[in-house]
Every structure is written in C-alpha cells, then in structure tokens.
Design a protein around this nucleic acid. Structure first.
Lengths: 210, 210, 210, 210
DNA sequence: AATGAATGAGGTTTCATTCAT
DNA sequence: CATGAATGAAACCTCATTCAT
C-alpha cells in the first residue's frame, strides 16, 4: 500500500500521472473510452484513488481536455510575446501543432462536448470555464498586438470562431474511420482535413479582419 | 399484438414513429439518452421491434440526426429553386430554423459526432455518409445560381464550413447548462449563441465569397 | 407464398426438409444451436411454418435425434435379420457407423438429454419414448437369435447399457474442443474416444453375457 | 454494502456461498436454470459480485459440477485409504451416495455436458479438466490396492467407464419427468434407475476385471 | 491517503413463439 | 396452409462509484 502523499506538489504529480495514463490509453485505443479501472491500473494506483483526485470520470476527461487547451494558450502566449509580428500562418502553425497533429486532441474535445451535460460536476465545469475564459481573455488581448482588431473582445471572438471551425470541421471530415468509405463519398467529402481546415480558417480570418 | 405491417409505406411509417419517439424523449430530457426500452414504449411498440428497424441504438440516433440534416437540405433546395435570388440572410434564416431554434438538433449532432465510432454499424454509417454527400452535392450545386462561387465544389465547401461553424460554436457556447455560470465567464463567453453565430457565419461567407 | 400442402405425403416431406435443414446447420456449426429462423430459411420456408410441423423447437430437435436412433435400429434389424450369426464386432461396426462417425449424432443426443425437461411438449416426448421403446423391444428381441441372452428383456437391457456407455463416454472424452488441452490432461484422459469406446463396450458385453 | 473481503479464506467462503446458492436453486427448480440474478440474490450478494468470482455463468455451473466430482473423489480416497479391502459393493455405495441419491448431481452433469462448448471460458475449462485428471490419477492409482488391475491407467479407465455408464444411463431412464409415462413404455424402459445402474456397473466391472 | 471488493443500476440484444393477413 | 412482422420476456455483463479497512 502506497504511503500518503502529503504535499501539494505530490498531489499535482499524482494528478498528472492520472491524466497521462488516460491520454495514453486514449491514444492507444482511440475507438473506445478506457474504463476508470484501466486508467488507474495504467497510472499504477488503485481504482478508488482516482476518485481522490477527480470527482467523476467526466471530470477527469475534462481535465485532460483542459490540458490540451492550456497547452495551446501557452504556446500562443509565448509566440505572441515575441517581438516579431505574427501573421496568419503563424496561427496556422500553432493550430496544426496543438490540434491537428496530436491524434487525441480533437477526439477528446468531441467527446467532452458530448458528455458535458452528464457526469461533469458543476464545480469542475465552472472551474474549467473560468480558466478557459481567462486564457481566452489573455490570448485574445495579445492578438491585438499582431492583428488589426478593434478591441480585446474581437480577439476572443476570433479565437473562439477558429476553434469552433477546427472542431466542427474535424467532426465532419476528420475522423478517419478504419471502415472503408466509398470513393464517391470520399471525393465529395473534400480533400484531407488539414488542407480544408487551412482554407476554411483563412477564409474566416479574412472575413473577420476585413 | 399489432398486426404485421406489410407494405414499404407502412414500414417507413413505423420507422418514422420510432424516430419521433426518440426525438421527443430527447427533447423532454436533453440531459440523458433515452434507453431503447423507453423509445419503444413511447412509440407504442415492443423493444424487440426497434431492432427490426434499426440494427443498433446508435443507428437509430444516426437516423434521427440524418432526418434533421435532410430537412435542412430539403428546405435549402426549395428555397434555392425559387427564382428569387438568395442572399446571405436567406441562408441565415434557414440556419436558424433548422439548426438554432429546434432545441434538439445540435445536441443530437454533438452526440452523434462523439459516438460515431462506437455502436454504429458500418453499413448504416456508409449509407448515411452517402446520402449526406449526395445532399451536399445537390445543394452545393444550387448555391452556384445564387452566389458568386467558382464551381460546384466551392458550394459544397461553403456548406460544410458553415455547418462546422454552427456545430463547433454551439459546442463552445451554445449549450446552456442549467448550472449557474459565473457572470464574468458569461461575459467573456460572449453574447448569446444566435448573435455570435450570425456574426461568425457572416465573416466566414464574406471571407469565402470574396 | 407457397401453396398449401394437402396430402400427408407432402406433410412428411416438408417435415423431413426441416429436419434436414436443422441437422445440416448443426453439422456446419457444431458449436451453436441454430435458431428457428435459420432452420426455416435453410429449409426454404417461413419461420411460422416450422410451428405447423413442430410444436416447439425442442420437439424439432427431439425428432432429429429420433431419426438417428431409428436409423440405428433399422440397420440393426437389417443385420440381425440376416441369417449369418452376429458377433460383437458386428455390433461395434454398427455403433461406429451410426454413432461415432457421424459428427452430429452424439452432440445432438447430449443436447437433447440436457434439454429434455424444458421445451419438449409432453405429447412429443411420450410419442418419442413409445417409438423408441418399440424399437428397443424389436431389436432387443432380435439379439436373442445371435447372443446368449436369457430373454428379450436382457436384449433391451444390453442395448440400453451400450448406448449409455457410448453417450456417457463421449461426454467425457469425445467432445474435442478446439481449445488446446494440455498434454498431461490429454494423456490422462486416455486414448481417443473410438478406441476407448471399443474397449469399454467389449468389457460391458463380456460382463453381461457372462 | 458488505465490507470487502480481504483474505483468501474469505474469498473461498464467498465462492462457496455462491455455489451453494446455485445448487440450492437448481434443487428447488430442477426444470430451469436459475438466472445469475437469482443466484446472487439467494447468496445475498449483488449481481456484479458473481462476476468477481466467476467469469461467466457457465463457469459457475462448471464449478458447481466440479464440487460434486471432487466430493466423490474425496470420499473414494478416504475409503480406499482405509486398510480394509474394498469390494465392488463399496464402490456402489459411494456411487449411490454421491451420484444417485443427491437429486442435483446428474442433472447438473448433463447440463454441463451439453453446455460445455458455450459460455465456459477456456481457462476455466482447462483448469477443471486438469483438476479432474489429477483426481482421476490419484483415485485410479488407489484402486490398484483393492482390485486386480494391471496398472494405474486401468484404474483411471475403470473410473471413467463407470462414470460414463452412470451418466449415460441416467440420461436414458433416470430423469423422471412429472409427465405421465404410459405403462408399456415404463415397463419397457426397465426397472428403476438405481437397480439397473447396479446391474450395469456390476457387468461392466466384471467384464473389465475379468 | 490509499486500497480494491462490493455494489447494482442500467443497457443492449436475442429469439422462440404468436397471429393477423 | 403459409407467411413473417411483431412480440416481450429473459439473459448476460459492464463499469462508475462507494466505503470499510
């Protein structure tokens, strides 16, 4: 039996381990949501321990999702803090790095969107939204320094619209099932997700900024 | 015991009944997915009968979702067939009528997106995608007659991008939880969904058409 | 829709078709009991039609089993009617031909034994037992002409004991699972079923006949 | 909620409780197989708990059956360890005590034989067979000290043949249906099961031992 | 703090049988 | 006689969560 973890630091570490485990399992089996037992085993703790760190399974998923979002915010802040002026392609690069290329981000975001009403505790949801709102505010404000935007709210808006497009488009065309998709449908459903996303975001930004 | 239904017409009717029941239940309890037993009872049939019409519960949900999409397509075709030239506001009207105002459409779309990998039979998924692709092709082509688009594919693209924005944005801000959302977050998370969607779509179309 | 079958002959034919179908399916998939729907489809009739010929699924299985038993009786009668004196090896030959070699006979017999209490209608069971009893009486009596038995009842007894040994031994060692059986167990569980059955029956007959 | 059971001993006890419950239910309603829910309720545990101890319902049935077999082996070992020389009647006594008189043993054995291919997990099946093989080896070896047998394998063989006869004969005549059996058939189908079994086993042993 | 055995609601699916046509 | 859509009971199993230790 593991010893009690006293410090906050240790708590955070344990928490991270659990998220790591959940994300690793999700990455290995993108087609199914790992059970709490699996996550616990992977993290090397007992099932009950998970509930010492997250009030529900959905809270855990939400936290994993937040990690992704926070990662994007951090990268955007880092880039925007740089003196060199950002252009749209810089945004696309970050988008690709944080949303398109990592295979688990958008599936998890989709799942979280669908599950939000269910098992997430109100406290966790509010905390999540508060932190995301703060992140949006900060990054939205930074955009002003690089793009021709009227005010801070416009930056927030642009970010949200972009994210909406990223997520919505992925749900339409991005989830490449292993099942065979007939050629005609594939052709109809447009080019690959990354290309189409690029074009769509470009249009959105152009329409917004001008 | 109900009498056997022989004709194709009757089969379709029964099928509709089941979808009606599922959607009605969803509308009454947006927070939970009704069980197959509930759907059957609501439709006035036995549980096993559901499986004569849908191979799995997820197939049923997908069919309900498809009905919504098909309804939008049909309305768009009807409007576009009209000689009077369409403008963006006509599109917004249809969008509001078919996606924003009906309370079940976007939650169901979200759910379907998240569940797509699970219980849906490959056949049902392929059939769904094929029909949607066909709908996109037809409606995309009609858009050419009203908007300045280079070719049919551009119409399809525009429709898909719009839908992505509608869905993605709803997942971000539209799902109004009964839970209290702190004022700051609410303020940050922008105005109401319909207004923001209008602005975002407008920007997208403007950026795309010009 | 098929035309009504008027004559008794046609009824018998239909009945045979159903048994053929059931046995063919069983032979193809010895690991599962075909559903009534499968049997019906295989026989080229509708599901409901099965119930015009058999009151329950178990009645159908019992009839299929009876066919096997009757086949053995017929062969035994044919051989015993022959003037040439039978010896034990003649019995073994018939046993092999009718029970050991056909792959479905003993599995079905086992199934019927296990299911006898359940869905078989009393009428069908009594009819089955009556006919089997008659077969036993006739064949048991014929044995008197070939083996040193005190009376007719002794012949019946010998047949029943033999059948019990055939069936019981098969249930112990004969059902070759596809699953791997560890070498030690396999060694312990004796040689193959046919050899062991031969030895066991020989012992039984020897002990019975003196 | 019952408190968790830590020790192996407690696990065994719980396991026994479940088997007891299953057998008690079987005894009360020999005509139907109790559902897992019933077994759990009878044992005073939750349904899910059953699956902590047995991987499937059939594994549970197999374990119950093994208990019977093991009980016979133990009794045989105990008797054979006794210095006093065993004779056939000692074997018959054990047979009656462990197979004929307890009303559930042979029905369950029949059921297990018929169901073996289905829900039993390969692991459980192999474990069962291994333990039974070991029991056979041990008891078969002990027979050498009491009966004129050439070697250990002959003892194993004799046991298996006997069991086959016990089981097979029961399946033929032992299962006394509540349904009325016509007098002629009853007469034909021989005396009662115990007497006939006695005679048959006697013949088998005589023929085997020479 | 950590454990993990126990819980038990919940869910999907199958399939033998019926009966209106 | 034949059909096959409808039935609905029955069954198994999973898994998020709790709580005594």
């Amino acid at each position: 039996m593991a010893r009690p973890l006293a410090t906050q630091e240790e708590r955070d570490h344990r928490s991270k381990q659990l998220l790591d485990a959940a994300l690793a399992l999700w990455q290995e089996h993108p087609d199914r949501i790992a059970s709490v037992a699996e996550v616990a085993q992977r993290a090397g703790v007992a099932k009950g321990t998970v509930y010492l760190y997250f009030r529900s399974k959905e809270d855990l998923l939400l936290a994993a999702h937040e990690r992704h979002v926070a990662g994007f915010f951090a990268a955007l802040v880092a880039r925007a803090a740089c003196s060199e002026r950002m252009v749209f392609d810089d945004m696309m690069l970050l988008t690709r790095q944080h949303f398109v290329e990592p295979p688990v981000v958008l599936p998890l975001a989709t799942l979280v969107a669908g599950v939000r009403h269910k098992g997430v505790t109100p406290e966790a949801l509010e905390a999540f939204e508060t932190r995301v709102a703060e992140g949006l505010r900060v990054t939205g404000a930074m955009l002003l320094r690089h793009f021709a935007l009227p005010d801070e709210l416009a930056g927030v808006r642009l970010l949200m619209r972009s994210y909406a497009l990223i997520l919505g488009l992925w749900q339409l065309v991005g989830s490449e099932q292993p099942i065979c998709r007939s050629p005609e449908v594939a052709a109809m459903l447009l080019p690959d997700y990354p290309s189409e996303l690029d074009a769509a975001l470009r249009a959105l930004w152009q329409g917004t900024l001008e």
